[in-house]
Design a protein around this nucleic acid. Structure first.
Length: 380
DNA sequence: GATTGGCTAAACATGG
DNA sequence: GCCATGTTTAGCCAAT
């Protein structure tokens, strides 16, 4: 690893981009002048923090978008906090603390990323156009619901009964709906190639039926659908009010978030997402060994991430070099320091676009699933 | 207008 | 026999 001055991302937090998300595919990696990769930031679009809305609006909003129930509520509930917020966030400090990241135990291989509060000017439009009430049907397809349920389970596999239960717990609409939706869930499980049936261990089998899991090769597609649905419904009203956000290349992404170049000693360090605190990926061994601050058990987690087998029309040589597809596993050191979260990749990791996409998709999946856990713990 | 995806309903089989 | 689970078919609707 060569040494040169490095430019850390600006410490100022990116304003919330509630007005719209920038699909990852539209923000390809860019090669910087020093040959390093720079990821034009793709803010994960989330609905506004329920804490920022009126109680009625927040309630109805959460009922349709449980994924949005985010760290804001957790942080605001005064839990023990290791707040790593930039110094000039004022009243939004609480929205960026990260203590909750380390409170999920072994539920998720990659901890969810924090989300940000909405821009004040966007709240009004949200409040004036509330999302469907608690009794209205959620916008997610059954495939997405099943996917979220399975992803939210510790073992990433659930019997259909638990899938029902998860849906009812997280979407009150289905608690009062007629039983036909259960048929749809089963129909979807059987018909969709995205889900695979696993025979239960006979020795431990208690109850009927099989376990269902998500086929890894379809996981990116499911994530994409989920993201699009989530993004569309969480930003639609705002997009209506702010058509200019649909124009141009950044979908309203603040200029500060468009691209940030990271170079040595954080070589191969990428910003994974824009929410503040921000996330970096680095494969710099020295950085891993000598992070900006000492790692504590609470701050470091050794995590594994399953490879994602991308289905592509053309299998290029770059695919074969994909460390994820080669090894099946990639070990990531995850810790946080100051306003950043870091993912430290093995020193010889080659970060190609596929890898970063996988990492980002995975992070988003964890974030989505993690937020659902927040919801389950604080709502219904 | 054709295609596709999603939803719903229904029938049927299987197993506890 | 009842019920939950799983599969399959068919029709409808909306978006592309």
């Amino acid at each position: 690893m060569e040494n040169s001055s490095h430019t850390l991302p600006p410490s100022s937090p990116c304003p919330t981009t509630f007005g719209g998300s920038l699909p990852f595919s539209s923000s390809p990696l860019q090669t910087c002048s020093n040959g390093r990769l720079s990821l034009p930031l793709s803010p994960i679009s989330f609905p506004p923090s329920p804490a920022s809305l009126s109680p009625a609006t927040a309630e109805s909003f959460q009922s349709s978008f449980p994924l949005s129930h985010c760290l804001a509520s957790q942080c605001l509930e005064g839990q023990n906090v290791h707040c790593l917020t930039p110094p000039k966030i004022s009243d939004q400090d609480d929205l960026t603390c990260l203590s909750w990241l380390h409170q999920r135990g072994n539920l998720l291989p990659l901890q969810p990323l924090p989300k940000m509060a909405p821009l004040p000017q966007l709240e009004s439009s949200m409040s004036s156009q509330p999302f469907p009430a608690g009794s209205s049907k959620p916008p997610y397809s059954f495939s997405s619901l099943i996917f979220m349920a399975i992803e939210d389970s510790p073992d990433k596999r659930l019997p259909v009964k638990d899938i029902y239960e998860w849906i009812v717990n997280n979407f009150p609409y289905y608690g009062t709906a007629s039983g036909g939706w259960r048929n749809s869930v089963r129909h979807n499980l059987s018909l969709s190639k995205s889900f695979r049936r696993i025979q239960r261990d006979k020795s431990q089998s208690v109850g009927k039926g099989s376990l269902w899991c998500v086929c890894p090769e379809y996981r990116p597609a499911l994530l994409e659908v989920l993201r699009k649905t989530h993004s569309y419904h969480s930003t639609n009203s705002n997009l209506i009010n702010k058509p200019e956000l649909l124009e141009g290349s950044d979908y309203g992404v603040p200029a500060v978030c468009e691209s940030m170049e990271i170079s040595d000693p954080l070589s191969h360090t990428l910003l994974l997402s824009t929410p503040s605190p921000q996330t970096l990926i680095t494969d710099n061994p020295s950085f891993a060994e000598n992070p900006p601050c000492p790692l504590t058990p609470d701050q470091e987690e050794l995590i594994t991430m399953e490879a994602v087998d991308y289905q592509q029309d053309e299998v290029s040589e770059e695919m074969e070099k994909d460390p994820l597809s080669d090894s099946g596993y990639i070990e990531l050191h995850y810790f946080q320091s100051h306003q950043y979260q870091y993912l430290v990749l093995p020193g010889d990791t080659e970060l190609d676009l596929e890898t970063v996409e996988i990492l980002q998709l995975d992070a988003e999946a964890q974030e989505a699933a993690g937020s659902l856990l927040d919801l389950a713990g604080g709502g219904y």
